[in-house]
Write a protein that binds this DNA or RNA. Structure first.
Lengths: 189, 189
DNA sequence: ATCAAAAACTAACACTTGTTAGTTTCTCTG
DNA sequence: CAGAGAAACTAACAAGTGTTAGTTTTTGAT
């Protein structure tokens, strides 16, 4: 399986443009121009604009799902699991900043795959919440409203795509450690 | 000055639609249909689609600017100032959830007013950061990277628009207090 | 050098977009 | 109830949209 097909280049280019202006405001001619070709030529590699969005979002959503399964099934403490979730987000975002913008802002423009995406997202959040709840039950975590804890953590983690590009100097590890200090020490009992 | 002009109704309706699909994906015909009229009729009240976006975003941005000036010029402790910033975001978001979606996601589609918006945003963040820095200097706040503190707080506060609509039962005060517990206790020394 | 596959091209389509012009209807004050 | 101003309407425009069909060029293995 080729790592860098023409199709992949199109998807990467499109993701970069989607990040700047959003899926709806980017035209096929925009994408083509950015690649130095004509719009019609894109269709030798992809079947529709929709397909580009689907490829960007679904592959990322599945990455998160896989990562979360590994974390929840490990034997670490619940606080450690939260740390690992932070690392998961930092790692995926570092590797695909543009794609994360689409995942966050353009998922509602998925058509056929919208239901599937929402299922993945709901499961992810359900698992996330269960880790927090277990952490509270085992007295690792302060007794604060667990949904607010998750909301606050997820908000920060989902915004990483806006911020990581400005921190090229810091490695993924440094960022993850700093975030753990802020997001977890606050709820640590 | 009339509180609820027809123009205001259009802006409110548009903001609701912009929240669902984003500015670019919403057509003038969508807005008109939602109001039960024809697209051309909108132009008796507004001059362009652009103007609608401008009205939504700039008025909110100026609200934040005004609020931040009041806070920074008060004589409260720096931790209290941070609490007040949280309350500011919760209050404004509670009163205009839809508008906050546009402010967060569609500011890049401002044309004439883009520069002005960015100026307001930059000033806001500069002031926010200065409060954190003073809090660290006065030993109120843990010595963590101040930019990461601000990033984490702002991410959460900017995502409130997604979350507050699901919490109709909680009052603005309850939400602000819960958020303060999580966002501030973590950095409190 | 040949030739098939890959990848680009031109031209055009049917449809949607924001917006304008001109006209009709509604509403409410004098 | 007359008449003006507000607010709706119909019809149409020019430009831009995603996409298709058919053709030419580029590429790389034999």
């Amino acid at each position: 399986m080729k790592l860098e097909t023409r199709k992949h280049e199109i998807i990467k280019t499109a993701a970069k443009l989607f990040k700047e202006k959003g899926y709806s405001a980017v035209t096929m001619r925009d994408i083509a121009t950015a690649m130095g070709i004509k719009a019609a030529s894109l269709y030798n590699h992809i079947s529709s604009k929709q397909e580009i969005l689907k490829e960007i979002i679904i592959s990322l959503a599945e990455e998160f799902t896989t990562g979360m399964e590994l974390i929840v099934n490990s034997n670490n403490s619940n606080l450690d699991k939260l740390s690992q979730i932070i690392t998961l987000h930092v790692t995926i975002t570092t590797n695909n900043t543009s794609g994360m913008a689409s995942l966050n802002n353009d998922w509602m423009h998925l058509e056929d795959q919208l239901e599937y995406y929402l299922e993945l997202r709901n499961n992810y959040e359900k698992t996330f919440l269960s880790i927090i709840n277990q952490g509270i039950k085992s007295s690792e975590i302060k007794k604060v409203n667990p949904e607010i804890i998750m909301f606050s953590m997820l908000s920060t983690l989902r915004s990483l795509y806006l911020w990581i590009p400005n921190k090229e100097d810091s490695s993924a590890n440094v960022i993850a450690n700093n975030l753990s200090a802020i997001l977890i020490q606050g709820i640590n009992k």
